[in-house]
Each structure stands twice: as structure tokens, then as C-alpha cells.
Nucleic acid binder design. Structure first.
Lengths: 127, 127
DNA sequence: TGTGCCTGCTCACTATAGTACGCACCTGCT
DNA sequence: AGCAGGTGCGTACTATAGTGAGCAGGCACA
């Protein structure tokens, strides 16, 4: 592998992960807990030092609430051809917390209920 | 990590690669040359013995003339195994509630914090 | 002022992705 | 029969993905 056109891809992926993490107001350790990866590794990923496995990418995408295809679009196919930092218009703009709470399979009905109660107390949920 | 839902994914990916390779009338060695990977590794991949990296997946997809998204659809999000299964197991995006809570722009920081505190008090079912 | 808890980062290490080589098998040629 | 060249596969090894521990710095509160 003398020629490594993939080194650019990991950098793009790293920037994407970093941007999404910041956007979600997550620390490295929080994202690590969410994605079941180590904070150290995530740090290295964001700095473009590794080629993550499919498993890692899937886990990170899920933790960030970003469709896996988007990550691939950034990393696998995110060719040159101009600026990529502009907002991706194809992406789901905002998925409401309420919807996600109802869908999350890792929550028990009681837990779901509790979260929704708290959410409702805010009165801000326009769903 | 006692629970490993990804083991099924690699099997699906393996079958997909195998099917595409046969469809293209390629031998393992030919695909190896095309994708710049070893025939031995491709053999193992097709048998679901490994979690390929993004780099490998990209290369294989290119070699097979298949969009990378298709491979992801099979491997990352696709149903596991049963191609002849009667049940239509269409899977939801399934994003974690925590991720959505952090992203939801309609929440104030304080509200976000409150919800996350509640969520954290559940102790997280996984691990 | 210091003590405690956060942040991201680096470094030594372990687990596993990915390779080089060679095996057993099959098919056709002379 | 024997050999040349094809197939997929197992196996020891190397490269690198991924981890755990601990660093320096920042911010709050006693």
C-alpha cells in the first residue's frame, strides 16, 4: 500500500464525527459510553488516525443518531469535489426527543413513561 | 460484550459478497486482485468470520461494481440470515433516546440536563 | 488556595483484521 | 498415468484497530 488514497477519507470521517459530536453537545467519554467504544479510540478517530471497522462505524452512527449511510457518504464516498462542510440537506433535520424515546427498544415501558412525563412537564414538546 | 448482534451482520455481508462475486463470475483470487485484498481474507469474509474495516468494504464494493450503500444496507442495517423467512422484519432507524435528547433543538440546556439525568438514573440496560 | 470533577489527549498494551504460503481437490491436456 | 493450472480453504504470522491508565489543563466551589 504505498499509495493510500484512503488517508483522506479517514480525515473526513474524523471531522464528520467531531462535528456531529459537538453538535450533540457530547464529550468524548459520553460518546464513548453511548457507542460502546473507548474515549481514547474516538479521539484518535476524530484525528483521522484509524480506519474504523464496520462495527465501530455502525455503533458511532447509532450513538450520534445519524444514519449509517451518512457516515459512509462522508467517509467512503466523500470524494473531493468541493466543500463538504455545508449542511447536508438530505439528512433528517431534527428528530424529536419524544419520538426517539418512544422508539428506543432499550427502554422499559416504565422508563419510557418516566421520560415522557418529564418531557411533558416542560410543555415545549410540540409533537 | 456477551451480547453480539453484529455476528449476524457479518454473515449477511459475507453472503452478499459471495452472491455478488458469483454473479460477476469472479474467482476469489480475481476479486482479490481487483479489490487489493488477499483471497484468503475474502474467503473468510464470505464465511462471516471477520468484521471488515471501512477500507476493505469500500474496496470490495468498488471491485464488485456495487455502491457502498448497498453493502451497508446488507451488513449494517439489513436483516440477519433468513432470506426465505416468512416474517418481513423491516427494521426501524432505531436511534437511541439519549442521542435524540441531546440533539433536540427545542430543549433548553436545563431541560436536556434533566432528561439525561433521568435517563442516566436507569443505569442503562446495556453493559 | 486547594481539592474535585470535568475536558481532550498520548502511550503501552491486547485483540483482531488482513496476508503469505501451502494444502487438498477438481479438470483438462499429452 | 502424470503434470499444469484452476478452484476454495486452513493456518501461522504481521499490521493495525481498539483499550485502559494516566497525563496536563480548565472551571467550580469550600
Amino acid at each position: 500500500m504505498a499509495d493510500d488514497p484512503w488517508s483522506g477519507q479517514v480525515e473526513a470521517l474524523g471531522r464528520f464525527i467531531h462535528a456531529q459530536r459537538k453538535l450533540a453537545n457530547l464529550s468524548l467519554r459520553e460518546l464513548a459510553a453511548l457507542s460502546d467504544l473507548s474515549n481514547a479510540y474516538l479521539s484518535q478517530l476524530e484525528r483521522g488516525m484509524h480506519h474504523p471497522s464496520m462495527r465501530s462505524v455502525t455503533q458511532i452512527a447509532r450513538a450520534l443518531g445519524v444514519p449509517v449511510e451518512s457516515m459512509l457518504a462522508e467517509a467512503g464516498l466523500g470524494d473531493d469535489g468541493g466543500d463538504d462542510d455545508a449542511d447536508t440537506a438530505r439528512q433528517e433535520p431534527e428528530i424529536s426527543a419524544e419520538a426517539a424515546i418512544r422508539r428506543d427498544p432499550t427502554l422499559t415501558p416504565a422508563q419510557r413513561d418516566a421520560l415522557l412525563a418529564v418531557l411533558k412537564s416542560f410543555g415545549s414538546s410540540s409533537e
